[in-house]
Design a binder for these strands. Structure first.
Lengths: 212, 212
DNA sequence: GAGAATGCTATTGTATACAGAATGGCGCGT
DNA sequence: ACGCGCCATTCTGTATACAATAGCATTCTC
């Protein structure tokens, strides 16, 4: 996927995440084309990709519609993510190398620092470091397929924004989980790593539900 | 995805599964277009879909290549499938309704019949019933995402043909697993259903490795 | 006045033409 | 003779033109 398609994809994805389109809205290719400043061809490619990500739904000969997400869908998402990230953590424990572990330590420390920063904790730093941590672990698991699946899961509209509602206490606990996971990985204990990771994701769901 | 795109997708997918293209081969859009009797546009859509299915790999400005599958990839596939189908079975146990359970019984019986048929067991019947069983269970789990993921997993080139190598004994054991899973589902016992399902998939991997 | 059928319009699906990027070969220079 | 660079060819990426389909409204008939 090259320049124009990529641009259209990013643009539309961004707008979908921002909620600029409402669930159920029809997306007309021509309008999107002018909106993104490209022709319909790359728009169609972008829409196909978005359909794969389950951001939109394509109905043959009838158009593309913004996906409507149900109540249960969100729990689905978390459950699947918990299971798969659990598997990733377990596998990562077997493949752990000190180099990557050091990188993980660094990200955990970054979050510590951001959270202890008294003039308002820096959420962006947390989000970035958090993303990197999970990404590194998934990479350590060494399965391309797992990576693809989890990427799909973590980039869902329902989830974006979720993290932003965490309270300070939850963020701190979240990072304690990270620390424990890294410890488990370093110990090469896959059950430990897996179970902490599963807890970690479930805790996130719980926090979210309580605070929304 | 409509007529021509669909046709191209099916055609190419079929050929890929048949092994008509070798891993690493470059797929030139024009050639595929004449091969499928459509223009490049639907071919490009089909290729994008195939790339999502991880049948091919697209490199920007350089073309599309038939995916090369590594040794570990196959075990990955089975492991992920085991985990996800396990989750599906567990969830299905909670949602089980007698109507669907009856359909499952029917498919199990179909396989029994096919396997006891003395003039050569009918593999096609087994494959079809097997597919339906797994499909019904996934549907009972009631998660669209899970369905999509598992569909991707079960339709990989590595897996197609796997089932066809099973020995009679393995097929019989496989159906015993099916029977037990249905029993667990009927009992509403999600742990039981999950663990049998996981065993079921792992047994399949093992059979395959031994007989290849 | 109600229902069905037909034509109109808007939008998707497909083909083709054109532009730009990448690779391979050829020639030129050293 | 060997290496570097340029040109040509080939293929991908994008735009646009054309075809087909679905939904809607209008009209005609009963």
């Amino acid at each position: 996927m090259s320049k124009a398609s990529e641009k259209a994809y990013r643009e539309l994805r961004e707008r979908l995440l921002r909620g600029e389109f409402n669930p159920g809205d029809r997306l007309v290719e021509d309008e999107l084309a002018t909106l993104c400043g490209v022709s319909r061809t790359p728009i169609r490619e972008a829409l196909q990709k978005l359909a794969n990500d389950m951001f939109v739904q394509q109905i043959p000969n009838r158009g593309t519609y913004v996906m409507e997400i149900s109540e249960t869908d969100q729990e689905d998402l978390f459950e699947l993510r918990a299971v798969l990230e659990g598997v990733a953590a377990a596998r990562a424990a077997k493949n752990a190398d000190e180099e990557t572990l050091a990188l993980l330590d660094k990200q955990v420390a970054r979050i510590d620092e951001a959270l202890s920063d008294s003039d308002g904790y820096q959420l962006d730093t947390f989000l970035d470091a958090n993303r990197r941590i999970h990404s590194l672990i998934i990479d350590m698991a060494g399965s391309a397929r797992l990576r693809v699946f989890l990427q799909n899961l973590t980039e869902q509209p329902v989830l974006i924004g979720t993290l932003q509602r965490y309270s300070m206490a939850n963020l701190k606990r979240s990072n304690e989980h990270h620390r424990e996971i890294v410890e488990a990985l370093r110990a090469g204990d896959s059950s430990w790593a897996q179970s902490v990771m599963v807890s970690h994701i479930h805790a996130a769901l719980h926090s979210f539900n309580r605070e929304k």
